[in-house]
Design a protein around this nucleic acid. Structure first.
Lengths: 330, 330
DNA sequence: CTGTTAGCGCTTTCAA
DNA sequence: TTGAAAGCGCTAACAG
């Protein structure tokens, strides 16, 4: 239809209200510096013109833009979705806007997006970053940045310790009498996977249980499904999956092969992201993703507020939630 | 630790490279205007200084910021998550950054966030907006804006027509011999709900089937679960739910009451958002959320590019995906 | 091919 | 309590 009409500016409002531009600026940012009726007059004109301050201009002048960036491996993954949601809500409380980016676990893509965000955000939150240390440093040294599920000394980080929950899971299975279990892992080099695998191995060993390790790479429903056949060929009576998606796939795969859960095989997931929506509610390790997101924002805003960067390291415990996919073995 | 160091600016790079600021600017935006070695020299200095152009300043000068806003009712809802993901990917292809906001179906919150985004985005995509027409107009008249799942003449919109899929669902049930079915709706006033409900009613009537209507309000897993008991007290042999979450809840609720799916009751969902992860794969209406997101971005960027706003109305068809939760009635 | 010169819209001393 | 003026970092004519 028509080209965009020229935006209303401070100057236009000033003109309309018969005051200087500084007064209009003050009316919006420090109204107590002006006489009450002046403020009202200005606001009235602004309203009537539909004036909205230009944030770019303000940012250029003040050095603050009120934005933060949130980088996750995959927005569509329920685990990150929960975190994304809480990050937004928390940022919103302080009137911050959030840029969202998905790296799809590709370092180049993550760096590209971060680069694009940099300069229009005051700080960043990197969840499960796949960047190398120097890649993270590049940004960490230039703006406040907090890491989630990534350990890097000197950079504030909030870590979800799935280890505690995993240990509870193993103990739960031990109590049910299982002696040979399986761990269906995701990507071998992932921080989370290593953490979960180690916790399972160690607590199983401590309890005198045997554990068969499998790795499916990309932790998807299908991957879990495929893992079912490998599992059946062992004497495993219970399986702990890297996450809920894999666990659900595993259950479907077992079912396809005539095995039922938990009668023939107990299954435990991790994340508590979508297990509660299953026909058979999934026993899983609840990870406080929402809490982690909130905490990350709190730390980031604190750094912005105080204009300092500190080396915080927060560890969030996880816990097993027993539902219907585990039982004693026969 | 330390306060933020002063940012590197164009001027500093210019000084370092012994050229004017315009040359540095050109080296980044229109390098073909400069001699190759000049560009290289400038980039070398910039790199070495870790210079990154300030987007606020650039935006102020060019009037373009390379950002768009995406507003959804709830990021954590798988339906919107899929769309969010595709919007991002599509925007990324054109080097746009996306601000994400969740309104939680609260008009005031939506308006507040939009207000905050406005002025730092070139355009907006509003998914399932809960704003009143004038509320939408306020923004639509001031920046390119495309609506998803919201009908408003004069504003470009992409509509996912769940009607086609719903009709297929009813036909599918009819073919299986069901004569009395139920529609488990969500919010009564929601555009999507009305559309789905109408489609079910009309096609059921055309096929001489009877349909019992229920409304659960907020379409959640628990709401679906609760609906199970009401359903049992009727002669319904098949139910179509507002969405997958409700359908999954319904299945769980039926199961709790000793009813199995699909033997005792066929169940069909809508969205195809998480039904494939169910132990019993859900028969559901696949909505092209990803496609809708892509299309919305395409239209928006097209408007930005051409600097015009057009009144496009795109309707995306949906289709039934038959999986395992439907069968003939006994 | 490159430098000079104005701004973009807003905030912020400094004066009045 | 208000205005004038400088400037944030960058781009974009316009010269040369």
């Amino acid at each position: 239809m028509s080209a965009e009409k020229k935006e209303n500016t401070l100057a236009r409002v000033a003109e309309g209200a018969g005051v200087s531009r500084s007064s209009v600026s003050r009316a919006f940012t420090r109204p107590y510096l002006l006489r009450r009726d002046t403020v009202e007059r200005i606001k009235a004109v602004a309203d009537q013109l539909g004036y909205v301050p230009n944030r770019s201009a303000r940012a250029l002048s003040t050095g603050r833009n009120g934005n933060i960036a949130l980088m996750v491996p995959d927005v569509a993954n329920p685990y990150y979705t929960t975190m994304t949601s809480s990050v937004q809500q928390q940022a919103d409380l302080s009137n911050y806007c959030v840029f969202l980016g998905s790296s799809f676990a590709k370092p180049e893509k993550e760096d590209e997006l971060l680069h694009r965000f940099f300069g229009q955000v005051e700080g960043m939150i990197l969840v499960g970053s796949c960047l190398q240390e120097k890649g993270i440093h590049k940004y960490a040294t230039r703006c406040p940045l907090v890491l989630v599920n990534r350990e890097l000394k000197g950079t504030p980080r909030v870590l979800i310790d799935s280890g505690t929950g995993m240990r509870e899971a193993v103990q739960h299975l031990a109590a049910f009498g299982h002696r040979e279990i399986a761990y269906i892992g995701g990507f071998l080099k992932s921080w989370s996977n290593k953490q979960r695998k180690t916790a399972v191995s160690e607590s199983a060993e401590a309890l005198g249980m045997r554990v068969n390790h499998f790795s499916v790479g990309q932790p998807s429903f299908d991957a879990g499904k495929k893992a079912a056949s490998n599992l059946i060929s062992t004497n495993t009576t219970a399986a702990i999956a890297f996450n809920d998606l894999v666990a659900l796939g595993l259950i479907a795969g077992l079912s396809e092969r005539g095995k039922s859960v938990p009668e023939d095989m107990s299954v435990i997931g991790c994340d508590d992201a979508l297990g509660m929506f299953n026909h058979l509610p999934l026993t899983t390790v609840h990870c406080g993703c929402a809490e982690a997101g909130r905490l990350a924002v709190t730390i980031l805003l604190e750094m912005l507020e105080r204009n300092t960067v500190f080396d915080a390291r927060s560890v969030l415990e996880t816990h097993l939630v027993v539902r219907s996919t585990t039982s004693g073995c026969n």
